[in-house]
């Protein structure tokens, strides 16, 4: 009995010593992370249009960029210019879109919106300050001349890129 007690006590002692020595290490490296914060949904405010604007019954997709190193990356965000899947469309489809800074983690990032560069369906931001920036992506489309969209599911993809400078 005495021997068993010693053995159990020794096992518990060894276990407790091992648990006390579990190391936790971490490293903060220069990096960019792209978070898909909110998935977008198209609203259908009129029979011929779709829009992610909340005023049109949609949900604006939001992406968050986290950069650890200041002035090392630029964000390049493209709004959709076509559907990845949709019912058959026989008339002209016109896409429009815009990207805006939604939230920032550092007051110094307040100048990002004024300094953005836009061309075609692409918007570029220079991420000059380390921290988090949220971007809202608005996408809208119209079909023909007030032509009603056929019923079905419409899907499109926006692209969020983080490119080292």
């Amino acid at each position: 009995m005495f021997t068993k007690t010693i053995a159990v006590s020794a096992a518990l002692l060894v276990g407790s010593v091992m648990a006390a020595d579990v190391p936790i290490t971490g490293e903060v490296m220069s990096k960019c992370s792209i978070y898909t914060d909110t998935a977008g949904v198209y609203g259908n405010p009129t029979p011929s249009t779709l829009s992610t604007s909340p005023q049109s019954g949609g949900v604006t997709p939001v992406v968050r960029y986290d950069v650890v190193l200041a002035d090392a990356y630029k964000a390049r965000i493209s709004t959709p210019d076509g559907f990845t899947s949709s019912p058959s469309l026989t008339d002209a489809v016109i896409f429009t879109g815009s990207v805006t800074v939604d939230k920032v983690s550092d007051i110094g990032m307040s100048g990002y919106e004024a300094a953005k560069v836009t061309y075609n369906n692409v918007t570029e931001y220079d991420l000059t300050i380390a921290g988090s920036t949220w971007f809202g992506i608005t996408s809208a489309m119209s079909y023909g001349v007030d032509k009603a969209l056929p019923g079905g599911t419409y899907k499109a993809i926006a692209t969020a890129e983080c490119i080292a400078k």
Binding site: A39, I137, T159
Partner: peptide, 19 residues
């Protein structure tokens, strides 16, 4: 790379480029 069945109404494709 997103599969069509993984995209909701508006999906987001991400690309990161190191230099």
């Amino acid at each position: 790379r997103l599969r069509p069945n993984q995209v909701q109404s508006t999906g987001i494709q991400s690309r990161i480029c190191s230099k």
